[in-house]
Simulated scan of single mutants.
Amino acid sequence: MTTFAADDPDKVAFAGILPAAPKPYVIGNGQGEKSLVFDQLFEILVSGDETDDQYGAWTMKARQGDRIPAHTHLRTHEFFYVVDGEISVWMDDQAEYHTKTTLTTGDFAFVPANIVHAFKIENTTTVFGAGTAGFERFFHAIGQKTDLDQPQGVYVPDFSIMRAAGEKYATVFMPEFRFRD
């Protein structure tokens, strides 16, 4: 398991929002740790700090947009549960499994570690996601801290930021990868 120090810069900007320890808490709608990544608003609801490094959970809100770059997480399993809206998800194990599925409200997708994947928001959508502990901070490392309640604008990180976040959170960007649509 990967743990990150209390002074990790991907946590510091958000100090005090989540309790940073496994104790009970409640946060209201829109009160989590928020970052804008491309045109998507990510809000961390619980991190590895609160779950003894077991998992992290977040929401992602976005309007219709372009497909995000193909990528794989080397250590992180994650899932998508569509709370409201429509999102297309591409997954490829680079062997036998190749799929593009459009998920709508109530649908679920599981993406194990080492599966190349990408997604595209088809219309205004809210997704609940969770993954292996520590990974949730990836959204802070690659994104821009914000107080927005709804996604607006676009934040495109420099490739050097994407690369550094990928190295830290074991994520490999694969812009040359071609899915079998």
Rank of each mutant, 00 (worst) to 15 (best):
88 S>C: 07
101 T>L: 08
120 K>V: 04
72 T>Y: 11
92 D>Y: 03
104 T>L: 03
52 D>L: 11
177 F>D: 02
37 V>F: 03
110 F>G: 11
43 E>F: 00
142 I>F: 01
160 S>G: 04
135 F>W: 13
145 K>V: 04
59 T>K: 05
99 T>E: 15
154 V>M: 07
97 Y>D: 14
163 R>E: 04
70 A>S: 09
158 D>P: 10
113 A>L: 08
62 A>W: 00
75 R>Q: 15
19 P>H: 06
145 K>H: 07
163 R>N: 10
36 L>V: 01
154 V>N: 07
83 V>N: 14
12 V>C: 10
102 T>N: 08
159 F>S: 13
42 F>G: 01
20 A>M: 15
69 P>A: 12
111 V>S: 02
94 Q>W: 10
72 T>R: 15
123 N>S: 14
164 A>M: 04
107 D>Y: 06
167 E>Y: 08
147 D>E: 12
3 T>L: 03
83 V>Y: 09
39 D>G: 13
177 F>T: 08
8 D>W: 00
9 P>Q: 05
155 Y>G: 06
79 F>I: 14
20 A>D: 15
105 T>R: 06
154 V>I: 13
175 P>I: 06
38 F>N: 10
35 S>Y: 07
34 K>C: 10
101 T>W: 05
171 T>C: 09
138 F>E: 04
93 D>A: 07
23 K>E: 12
137 R>W: 14
37 V>P: 04
116 V>Q: 08
27 I>Q: 06
13 A>I: 11
